[in-house]
């Protein structure tokens, strides 16, 4: 049991992308997904209790070690360059896509009241938004959605981790 936890910890450490339970089952014979998920949970708690500077987070359906958010000022000293920030236009466009996906560009234009071509192009290039397909109406407009990278960049387990539109609405009233 303890050995398995150690193996999983090492796998997560060595993995470039968030490690999924399915992947661990492939690697560790004789285990099942349920068991691995439990062991993931155990590791998460271990890191929390230790007050570690690194925490284990569930990201985009997998697990990944990430530094604690409050330690960012120190890590920024280590890193060169400033993090690439999204413009307000890009953030608003991304928010509309995240909540209303799958959707066409005309719908984003309508909600934001501006032409979002530029912002959308930037998001596609940054791979935060992707083309999901085409809508079966005249003109076959392109349908957009968010990517796995969107979840990774915004530190999200899945889309349901975002506050719902209703919660945001209630907040304003």
């Amino acid at each position: 049991m303890e050995e398995k936890v150690a193996i999983i910890e090492a796998l997560i450490f060595a993995s470039e992308t968030p490690l999924t339970a399915e992947r661990v089952v492939e690697i560790l014979p004789g285990t099942d997904k349920k068991e691995i998920v439990l062991l993931f949970g155990e590791l998460v708690r271990e890191y929390e209790q230790r007050g570690s500077g690194v925490c284990l987070r569930e990201i985009a359906g997998g697990f990944q070690f990430r530094t604690r958010a409050d330690l960012a000022p120190w890590i920024r000293k280590l890193k060169t360059g400033r993090p690439a920030m999204l413009s307000q236009a890009a953030l608003e466009t991304l928010a509309v896509v995240a909540y209303r996906q799958p959707l066409v560009k005309a719908e984003i234009d309508r909600i934001r009241g501006v032409d979002v071509s530029g912002a959308l192009k930037g998001l596609l290039e940054k791979k935060l938004v992707r083309i999901v397909g085409r809508k079966d109406v005249p003109g076959k407009p392109i349908i957009y959605g968010t990517t796995r990278k969107f979840l990774e960049v915004f530190n999200l387990r899945d889309l349901s981790e975002l506050p719902t539109l209703r919660e945001l609405k209630d907040l304003q009233e």
Partner: peptide, 18 residues
């Protein structure tokens, strides 16, 4: 508001690092 919430999340390469 949703955009603001997104921006305030711990962002990769800004607040959290792998």
């Amino acid at each position: 508001e949703a955009a603001l919430r997104l921006e305030n999340r711990p962002l990769l390469e800004r607040d959290v690092f792998t």
